[in-house]
Simulated scan of single mutants.
Amino acid sequence: MNSADDLKAVGPRIRMMMPQLTPLEARVVDTVFGLRDFSEDTALKDLAAEAGVSEAMVVKITKKLGFSGYRDFRYAVSHYNRLPTAEMHQELSAEDSSREIVQKVFRTSIQALEETLAILDLDGFDRAAELLARAGHRDFYGVGGSAQIARDVAHKFLRIGIRVNVHDDSHMMLMSGSLLGPEDVAVGFSHSGNTTAVIDAILLARKSGARTIAITNYGGSALAQIADIVLCSTAQGSPLMGENAAARIAQLNILDALFVAVAQRNYPAAEKNLEKTMSAVTSKRKDKLP
């Protein structure tokens, strides 16, 4: 692991595994990232003592996270921590000035974009674009903030003549899923990947024969495990912002790129429909004041 993108992916891949760790295992990982002087020289016994666990436990955790052992984990994390994008993340504080708030929020979003780009499954991205371009029906499921992301991309698709149904009610999702078939696509939006209403609808859509896509922040989540294609964002959380704020920016960018890829597959039709939809709303604009 030595390319820039490989190193950028270290933090995101560990964060995506966190929900699958026990509280004790997660505490050990938090200890690692909380050590400002963690480096290739950090001894296994010193980390184990700092975390209050055995050396064997530390090694077990590193393997659970997908590394060959402690040395592999130590090399990857220490190099990741030295990346400019990793250093961007700074915790927000109630005492921050307006300048500090703006800088920290922007840097958190930039980090989320850089790291999401590093882990994005491009083969899955291409397959998702192909499915959405050819689908008979496209039904999107999400609740809360995830529903707003679904509505944003549905709006973009409508501009090029591609119709999408967005459902944020659990009953409507299930009814939708039951009516889909092999030519259709269901997309589930859930930051955690554990939203039961979305999971139930995606399961039913899949049972009905539809292809399924998950948009989530956790590749090992319940939603990701049942979807045909998974497009993951990644973002570091903070006490004041949480994870959702920066992850939303990353997901919107994934979906903007997906919109362009779908439009590209039938560019003449997309261009023609964009002209129509833009013309239709021109009368509602007031570009010049009287």
Results as ranks from 00 to 15, higher is better:
D5F: 07
V10P: 06
M16F: 00
M17T: 14
M17Y: 08
P19R: 05
V28R: 00
F33K: 12
F33C: 15
G34S: 04
F38P: 06
F38G: 10
E40H: 10
T42H: 01
G52R: 04
I61P: 14
T62L: 11
S68I: 03
S68F: 02
D72H: 08
D72G: 08
D72K: 15
V77Y: 10
S78M: 01
N81F: 00
L83M: 07
T85V: 05
M88F: 11
S93Y: 08
D96Q: 14
S98V: 14
I101R: 14
I101V: 15
V102D: 00
V102M: 06
V105A: 14
V105D: 07
S109T: 05
T116D: 09
D126Y: 08
R127S: 10
A128H: 07
L131W: 14
L132N: 01
F140D: 00
A147H: 01
R151W: 03
A154T: 11
L158M: 15
I162E: 03
H167Y: 15
H167I: 08
D168R: 08
M172G: 13
D184N: 06
V185A: 09
F189W: 05
T195G: 13
A197Y: 06
V198S: 01
I199T: 08
L204F: 02
T212E: 11
Y218A: 15
Y218D: 09
Y218K: 14
G220W: 06
S221P: 08
A224D: 03
A227M: 12
Q236M: 03
A245N: 13
Q251P: 03
Q251F: 11
L252N: 14
N253I: 12
P268A: 12
P268C: 08
L274D: 13
T282P: 03
R285K: 11
